[in-house]
Computed example of a mutant assay.
Amino acid sequence: MKFYNRSNPETVHSAICFVDILGFSSMVYEAFENDTGNDLLKRLHMTLTENIAELRPQEEYVGVLKTFTDNIVIGHPIYEDGESQLGSIFLNYAAYQLSLTLEGFFVRGAVSTGEYYADEEFAFGPALLEAHHLESYEAITPRIILSNDTVELVYKHINYYAEPSWSPQARDLLKENTDDKYFINYLEAAMGDREYSDYNNAFIILQKHKAVIEENLQKFQGNTRVYSKYLWAAQYHNFFCDLQFETPYRQQLQIRGIPQGNFSLIV
C-alpha cells in the first residue's frame, strides 16, 4: 500500500476533502469593528480545536490533515477500491460540519479523488487543486460537494449491495437537482448510529440547527447574496426533517415561510 513518504515525496492516488468557513473574512472584520474580535477568536479556537482533533488521522499512513485557520484539507491514500477512505470522509466531515454549524459557523467544501501528496509542511497535487476549485466556484452554498469522478466511484461502491438503498452511501449523501451536485448529508450525523437511533436527541439537535438558520435568515434579510446561502440551508433542513420525522415532530422542526428546495436521495 502506498502512503505519503517524507523521505521520498511522490503523489499517491487519494481521496481529498477541502473545506472552509463561509464568510470568514467578513466575520473577522465585523467582530473587530464591534470590539468583539477576541470573543470570536475564543469561540473559533475552542470549536475548531475540538473538531480538528476528531478529524485528524491517528496514523500517517491512513492520511494527513492540513489546517490554516478556517481552511482544512484531509487526504487519504486510496487502497483497494477506495470505499473505506471515502466513507471515512463522509462520516467524519458530516460530524465536523454539523458541529460547526450548530456553533454558527457554516462551511462549504468539496471532495475529489486523484493524485495528491501531503506532509506536515506541504500539500500538492491535482486532486487538491480540483477540490479547491469546486469549493471556491461550484459549492456556493453551505455544502460539501463531490467531484464527478468521486460520484462515479460512489455508484461503483453502491452497486456492491444487493439493495442499493441499504448502502451507507444512500444515507451519507444527497443530490441537489437544480445543479446535479451531490453533497454530504451532514444532518445524518444528528441521527447517530442508525441501529440505535435516539430520535429525542436528534430532535433537540435539529431544533438548534433550525434556530441557528432562522437567526441568520433574519440577520441577512437585506443582503440577497448572503441570505441565499442560509435559504439553501433552511431548504435542506426542511427536506431532511421531512424524511426523518412524522407529524407533529416534523411540523415543529420546519422552518416556515421559505420555498421548497429541490433535493433527492441518490438511490
Rank of each mutant, 00 (worst) to 15 (best):
I205T: 03
N238F: 01
V154Y: 02
Q207P: 05
N216K: 05
V226R: 01
Y236M: 10
N185F: 13
D149A: 07
F203I: 07
T178V: 14
E176I: 06
F239N: 11
T224C: 06
A190P: 01
A211N: 14
N223Q: 08
E188T: 11
Y230S: 13
D193L: 07
Y155G: 11
E214L: 01
K208V: 07
H209L: 05
A190Q: 03
K219W: 13
M191Q: 05
V151W: 01
K219F: 14
K229N: 15
K208A: 14
D180K: 03
S167H: 12
D193W: 12
I204E: 13
G222F: 00
F183V: 01
S228E: 15
A189P: 03
G222E: 05
D193N: 08
F220E: 04
N159L: 09
Y182G: 05
A189K: 01
T224R: 05
Y236P: 00
Y236Q: 00
A162C: 13
F183M: 03
Q235F: 06
E152W: 06
F183R: 02
F240C: 14
A234R: 00
F183D: 07
Y186C: 15
L187E: 13
S197D: 04
Y182V: 11
G222R: 01
R194W: 14
I213G: 10
Q235M: 06
N200Y: 02
P164S: 09
E188G: 05
K210G: 11
D172T: 08
K156D: 14
Q207N: 13
N223T: 11
I205W: 06
V154Q: 02
H209Y: 04
Y182W: 05
N216G: 11
D172K: 07
L153F: 10
V226K: 00
T224I: 06
N148F: 13
Y155D: 12
Q221K: 00
E195A: 15
S228C: 10
E163Q: 15
F239E: 08
Y161P: 12
